[in-house]
Structures are given as C-alpha cells and as structure tokens.
Amino acid sequence: MSDDPQFTIARAIRLYNRIDELPRLNEGLEALGADLGWPGRSVMNLMLACEELVVNIVHYAYPEGGEHVIEVDVRATSDSVEISVSDGGVPFNPLETDNDPLSLLDMDLEERPIGGLGIFFVQKIMDDVQYEHAGGMNRVRMIKRF
C-alpha cells in the first residue's frame, strides 16, 4: 500500500442487470482488494454491501426488462473506500424501507418476514450511505473508513 495518504485509486465496474453478473462484481472487488492489500474480511463486507444493492436493481429497477448497465464506481484511498452504485431504472430510494429493520431482529421465527435485510446490511457495514436521484439516475453512495 502506498505511503502517500493522498493517493486515490479509482475503478469502474460495469455490470449488466443480470444476476449472473455477480461473479464479475466479486472479481472486480477482489482484484482491487488485492492491489490495495485489504484484509479478506473487508473485501467480503464490500462484496456484501454491493451485492445487496445490485441484486435489488436487477430484480426491481427495470420492470419492462431489457439490458441495462449498472455502474459500480470505487474510489479508494489509503484509509477509506467510497463506492457508488448507479442505475437508470425507475426512481427508487432503497434507504426508505417500509419496515424498521431493527424490529426484525427480535422477532420469533414464525412472525419474521422473509426478506428485508439487504439494505440493513448495507447500512450496518458502511459508515455513511446516501441516496440521490439526479439526471435520470438512481445513485447510492457509500463510504467505509478503515
């Protein structure tokens, strides 16, 4: 890893809105982690945060179907990483969920709804998560400080 605290590595991972693109997302993050010397667990956490967002986009952003691009932009410095995940699908803020994810945690097996955890993981893993809709694009920006 560079001694220069100002260094920045920027990398774009472009995916199609298909679930079989997940391996490419993971390979991209693994390669970046190897270049920067990130611990394996940190890479897995970033994979999890990105997967949850990308899977949501694949399933819900393009109800009319068709092939579209999901842009995963990673900017890493020596002590932080910022990832933005963008799509041009239907405007949707994943951070505005109907149910309070924390209320799920104490539920019994029988009453617990299936699903609803993905965005909760993103918020739990990353230090800062923000959503914006601009220029016809949904964009979730998230930051992790090491």
């Binding site: 994979m47 999890l48 997967e51 949850e52 097996l109 029988e110 617990r112 299936i114 955890l117």
Partner: peptide, 20 residues
C-alpha cells in the same frame, strides 16, 4: 461456506419456517 448474503439467509429462513 465462505460467504452468505441476504438472498442466502432467505433460504435458511424458508427452511426453518417450513420445518417449524
């Protein structure tokens, strides 16, 4: 198993509910 996401957890929850 090295890695699980919410989609994977969903399967475990489905199994637990069905078996309950």
């Amino acid at each position: 198993l090295q890695y699980i996401s919410s989609a994977g957890l969903r399967v475990i929850l489905v199994a637990a509910k069905k078996l309950r």
